[in-house]
Design a protein around this nucleic acid. Sequence first.
DNA 1: TGACATTAGTCGCATTTGGTGACTTATTCG
DNA 2: CGAATAAGTCACCAAATGCGACTAATGTCA
Lengths: 233, 233
Amino acid sequence: MPNRTSVPAGRTSTRRTAPTVDVVLLTPQGRRLSVLLQRVEGGKSKERWALPWEALRGDETIEDTAARIARDALGSAPNLVEQVAAYGDGRRHPSGSPLSVAFLALVAAGAPAPVGGATAWFAIDDVPPLAPRQKAMLDGALHAVRTRLEHSPVAFRLLPTTFTLSELQEIYEILLGRRLHKASFRRALHAAWLVEPTDEWRSEGRGRPAQLFRYAPRKRRSSRRGVRFEGIE
Amino acid sequence: MPNRTSVPAGRTSTRRTAPTVDVVLLTPQGRRLSVLLQRVEGGKSKERWALPWEALRGDETIEDTAARIARDALGSAPNLVEQVAAYGDGRRHPSGSPLSVAFLALVAAGAPAPVGGATAWFAIDDVPPLAPRQKAMLDGALHAVRTRLEHSPVAFRLLPTTFTLSELQEIYEILLGRRLHKASFRRALHAAWLVEPTDEWRSEGRGRPAQLFRYAPRKRRSSRRGVRFEGIE
DNA sequence: TGACATTAGTCGCATTTGGTGACTTATTCG
DNA sequence: CGAATAAGTCACCAAATGCGACTAATGTCA
């Protein structure tokens, strides 16, 4: 990616102590997730890439700030924006601020090409060095997207509005990091009443054409289950 | 609770714009959770109670700040302190700050009596009016404690180091808001290798004495399960 | 054209997990 | 002693899940 320029946005105009809002923009690429980073003017430090961020202004909610940062970095609005957590450990942040709030933003597969020369997608297991706090925020966002998989429509926000069930399953496999059995996946999906078929089909070269579905969650009985002790340390 | 005094701690000395750290201290009382509130000088507003909070200082991590606030309010250290989320919507906070970070702190049943006259426990469905952002933080903390039940040892931190299985089940019932079947609960608990028996027994008046257990999580195979679509909106 | 590769989608069974009522055990109370 | 009470266990049945094997619909290539 030749001829990148630097990002001027709001890096110097605010007090060093103001909290920042940082956005982890994720999209599926190939069989892995990628994160959007911006090139920054490498002053004295060697770090040249950073998560999009901005100092918090008093006149905006942090959610609005995060959505605006994501839109500016991407050129269009992401499909989902959710808070991850606040980071106020001692780790270093480009701003020098003691406190940052991390947000997660999801973008559908395929849609976005890296916008300007100052912005690029990086596969998440091949990111360049980041400031320590931004690295922690990236890890936190990845952890969040995985754990929220069954309580938030995360996977559906990583796909276009219509998609095949194989594509959906692939997203789950990417996020969970393991293969899933086709029949079991579909049985659970249909039992949950989360998708409905469209009347379109997609022929992807070889093989039988796949029916396209859309995300359309239906009311369903709250499963009066017992307790799970699955993931306690 | 007669003769309460006001809490002087750090309310006026910091800039109005500095972020705050607010702590939701919870403990089981009777068959419900209670939250610790502090009486504040009712200046012009009618709100007289508030979550313990303090403006963020530059020399401390937010986790340390939260732990210290909890310790000061309680008189002793809580069993668990976890971040809930950052709150930077427009809602009003006693500090006037645009940003607050909420923490959750858990205290074992029975242990703590309300410390000074400025501090009291309130059953969570009978709290006095709070500033809107603190009300949102309380709701967020309650939601967090319920959803983290199966991924964090939340329930065990609401009990003393040794406890009976009936007591543990009662905590789960309080947090989940429904009754559980004894045999199923114990089967799942033992399968998860989370507790080990001590050689002590507790005789609680009538009935057969109960064996005391302690929280002692063991390594266990990561359950190679399929996907759950349980709670997606 | 017809065999084959490839991908979608389904079926049915074996096994595991979970809900539940009824049971046994150990204690206090009268 | 027997009734009451609470702890702890058992065994059965139903529901959920893992999984191999199947059918279906398309493109490729000899």
